[in-house]
Design a protein around this nucleic acid. Structure first.
Length: 231
DNA sequence: CCTATTTGACCTAA
DNA sequence: TTAGGTCAAATAGG
């Protein structure tokens, strides 16, 4: 599975009813993203030749997971799918969450991204900060990441995640909230120099994302996203 | 039998 | 009224 192009938009325009206001849109070559989805509807959208399919998390009922997504074939390129994600995955599907339990990340990453505490802890219970932390790096497994090069990698994740939380909780209503890529603030987009620095730090990474041991969807991990993976 | 998908009906915001 | 999103009964498949 390869993501040819990823265009990410975190959309604050419409708050999808009671759902999270955050929307992530990406264009991929396969609608498969490693998550457990259940289709609940399909409609032909006005002025669109391709139908739009509606999916909700398989664990909506047993775990109250509010995540939904919409899949529509690209108008310009029928081999691609435009997928919009709404809300956050709060479920604990072991097949989709690899960041907890047995597949814990290396020690120096263990305390960096703790979705269990984020999703079920104070952040989740505080309705005013319903930030889709779990969508930051959806479906990613750290179980077989290379041992080398991780400090820079993790530091990057930590910085982005921590600042995102701060931005969400502190500047949520402020007009100065930066435009975001996926769920990460625009300020963490790889600036030319920054990319080089990151590349240097993770120079021992395999050259292809598919060989990194990630599973499922890369979500916001495109080649031109947070990290300058060579491809 | 159980779970997922299909599909027309229904609901609601614009 | 219309378009888009969701519901739920019928159906399919393992």
């Amino acid at each position: 599975m390869m993501i040819q192009q990823v265009c990410l938009v975190t959309d604050h325009r419409k708050e999808q009813k009671s759902k999270s206001p955050f929307i992530k849109t990406e264009t991929v070559t396969t609608p498969e993203d490693g998550q457990s989805w259940r289709k609940y509807g399909q409609k032909f959208i006005h002025k669109s030749t391709n139908p739009r399919s509606y999916y909700r998390c398989t664990h909506k009922h047993d775990q109250g997971c509010k995540a939904t997504k919409q899949v529509q074939k690209s108008e310009s390129n029928p081999s691609e799918f435009v997928i919009s994600y709404f809300g956050e995955h709060t479920c604990k599907d072991p097949s989709t969450l690899h960041l907890e339990g047995a597949a814990a990340p290396p020690d120096h990453c263990a305390n960096l991204i703790d979705f269990s505490s984020i999703n079920n802890g104070t952040a989740a219970t505080a309705s005013t900060s319903a930030f889709p932390h779990s969508m930051l790096f959806p479906g990613i497994s750290y179980s077989s990441l290379p041992a080398q090069g991780l400090p820079a990698f993790c530091e990057k994740l930590t910085q982005a995640a921590a600042d995102q939380v701060a931005a969400e909780e502190g500047q949520r209503m402020a007009a100065t909230v930066p435009l975001t890529v996926g769920s990460a603030p625009a300020e963490y987009w790889p600036a030319p120099g920054e990319v080089d620095a990151v590349d240097a730090g993770i120079s021992s990474f395999p050259s292809s994302p598919s060989s990194l041991g990630f599973t499922g969807s890369f979500g916001s991990f495109g080649d031109d996203d947070l990290f300058g993976f060579d491809s």
